[in-house]
């Protein structure tokens, strides 16, 4: 399966040139760009690990791509990597754009557990296959 989080998961995988253009868009808007990675892409796993801190004063996408490549050296092929842009404007002060740049070679996806409870009620639990058997860091 292919997880479809992020703004551009329905498009073919992005080239570095395409990634750079999206990052430049964020930088030109004055947003700070961050690189994050995880081996547990559960839809409610909000806090992916940060690769360093958000880059606040970078003017050119090459600076972010430099870090993305550093991150790939360590986690490429084994983790999901995403780029997240933060807008500090009053009344927003949150993420403005987020998209996946890298995926592990294989994406096992999620299991849906159903627990039948009172009446016809069901309690649902989504679990990452990747996170089920192995600990963090040894999943892909």
């Amino acid at each position: 399966m292919r997880i479809t989080q992020g703004a551009f998961s329905f498009l073919p995988d992005l080239t570095d040139e395409q990634i750079a253009k999206q990052i430049q868009y964020c930088i030109d808007k004055g947003w700070a760009v961050n690189i994050e990675f995880t081996d547990d892409p559960h839809p409610r796993n909000t806090y992916w690990e940060m690769w360093g801190m958000p880059m606040f004063d970078v003017k050119d996408a090459a600076g972010v791509l430099f870090e993305l490549n550093e991150c790939r050296k360590t986690y490429g092929g084994r983790n999901y990597i995403r780029v997240t842009a933060f807008d500090s404007t009053h009344t927003w002060e949150s993420v403005r754009l987020s998209f996946i740049t890298d995926r592990p070679a294989e994406e096992p996806g999620f299991a849906l557990d159903r627990q039948e409870v009172d009446g016809r009620n069901v309690r649902y639990t989504t679990r990452s296959y990747a996170a089920m058997s192995r600990p963090e860091g040894a999943r892909y």
Partner: peptide, 14 residues
């Protein structure tokens, strides 16, 4: 290393 990289990132494009 992080300090130097930080500066390099800021300077990129310039």
């Amino acid at each position: 290393a992080p300090k130097t990289k930080e500066i390099l990132k800021k300077a990129m494009g310039g």
